[in-house]
């Protein structure tokens, strides 16, 4: 019963967002981005509701959701740390920063801490190549990192 009422609430929220975009098919990406922001990820239920409201198949919505690396189809941590692994950041010392982050959080890249607070990921070039190593934590960018600085930044989010 409890789950059902939660689902009803989500279904309502999905309708509100889809309505805001006038039920337009071409707004699917924005709709998914907003839902991804609200819930942290796009659950099967959310994708089905979006599909229903836009008169698409669930497969179509899923195919879009899984195409983009900033949309999650599985639960992720509250803060997603994306460390740039492209060559300029590597030359600037990305590997040491990666080790420090691993050690600090006790997880490997691709994993989420058990308290659901942090997900650790690598990302491709984020355009901070002159100030590497660099990382994004959700929408905030951090650069000129070294192991110490990186760990201190993460500490602020604890």
């Amino acid at each position: 019963m409890k789950l059902e009422s939660r689902n009803n609430q989500i279904a309502q929220e999905v309708i509100e967002i889809v309505e805001k975009y006038n039920f337009q098919r071409e707004k699917l990406l924005q709709i998914l981005e907003e839902l991804n922001d609200s819930y942290g990820y796009l659950s099967e239920f959310v994708m089905k509701e979006v599909a229903k409201n836009l008169q698409l198949t669930t497969t179509e919505v899923y195919s879009v959701a899984t195409f983009y690396s900033f949309l999650n189809t599985r639960p992720k941590g509250k803060y997603i740390i994306r460390l740039c692994k492209t060559i300029s950041c590597v030359l600037a010392g990305k590997n040491a920063v990666a080790n420090a982050l691993r050690n600090e959080l006790g997880i490997d890249f691709g994993e989420t801490t058990s308290d659901g607070k942090f997900s650790l990921e690598f990302t491709n070039c984020i355009g901070m190549c002159n100030q590497g190593p660099a990382m994004l934590i959700n929408n905030d960018v951090y650069y000129h990192l070294d192991p110490e600085k990186a760990v201190e930044i993460v500490e602020k989010y604890q």
């Binding site: 492209t86 060559i87 300029s88 491709n124 070039c125 355009g127 901070m128 190549c129 002159n130």
Partner: peptide, 8 residues
């Protein structure tokens, strides 16, 4: 959509 590695 500047994404080419090394471009900023």
């Amino acid at each position: 959509d500047e994404g080419e590695p090394g471009t900023f």
